[in-house]
Amino acid sequence: MREPYEVLGVARNASQDDIKRAFRRLAKKLHPDANTSDPKAQDKFAELNTAHEILSDPEARGKYDRGEIDGEGKPKFQGYPGGGAGFGGAGFGQGGPGGFRRTGPNGETIFESFHFDDDSAARRGRQGANSGFEDVFSDLFGRFRSGGGRASSEAAPKGGDIEIVVPVPLERVVEGGPVKVALPGGSTVEIKVPAGVSEGHRLRLKGKGEASPFGGAPGDAYVVVHYATHPQFRVDGVDLRLDLAVPLQDAVLGGKLRVPTLGGSVDLTIPAWTQNGRTFRLRGKGMPNTHGGHGDLLATARIALPDDRDPELEELMRKRRKAAE
Score class of each variant (00 low, 15 high):
101 R>N: 13
203 L>A: 04
301 A>K: 08
142 G>E: 08
283 R>D: 14
150 R>A: 13
58 P>L: 00
33 D>C: 00
235 V>P: 03
289 N>G: 15
133 F>D: 06
320 R>N: 13
81 P>W: 01
218 P>L: 00
66 R>A: 15
114 F>N: 05
70 D>G: 10
9 G>V: 00
42 Q>L: 12
15 S>H: 02
279 T>L: 04
134 E>S: 10
97 P>N: 12
178 P>D: 03
316 L>G: 11
208 K>H: 15
284 G>R: 03
16 Q>R: 01
219 G>E: 07
208 K>T: 05
39 P>L: 07
3 E>T: 07
81 P>Y: 01
212 S>Q: 07
127 Q>D: 14
41 A>C: 03
256 K>S: 14
176 G>N: 00
190 E>H: 02
242 L>E: 05
52 H>K: 07
151 A>P: 11
274 T>C: 06
242 L>M: 06
4 P>W: 02
320 R>L: 15
64 Y>L: 03
273 W>Y: 15
207 G>W: 03
263 G>H: 13
127 Q>W: 14
9 G>T: 01
2 R>L: 07
30 L>G: 01
170 L>Q: 08
129 A>I: 09
256 K>A: 09
143 R>I: 09
290 T>M: 08
20 K>C: 06
94 Q>M: 10
242 L>Q: 05
46 A>F: 08
302 R>N: 09
7 V>K: 01
315 E>H: 09
113 S>K: 06
286 G>E: 09
50 T>Q: 13
45 F>G: 03
161 D>Q: 05
87 F>H: 07
296 D>I: 02
183 L>P: 00
180 K>Y: 00
16 Q>E: 10
126 R>D: 05
52 H>W: 05
124 R>C: 05
123 R>E: 13
192 K>D: 12
207 G>F: 02
141 F>W: 14
139 D>K: 13
31 H>D: 09
21 R>Y: 05
35 N>S: 12
240 L>V: 02
133 F>K: 14
264 G>Q: 10
135 D>N: 07
258 R>T: 13
297 L>M: 08
31 H>R: 10
137 F>E: 07
13 N>Y: 01
277 G>I: 09
312 E>D: 10
245 A>S: 11
86 G>R: 01
289 N>P: 07
29 K>M: 13
74 K>C: 06
138 S>Q: 14
113 S>A: 15
141 F>E: 06
59 E>M: 03
278 R>W: 11
244 L>T: 02
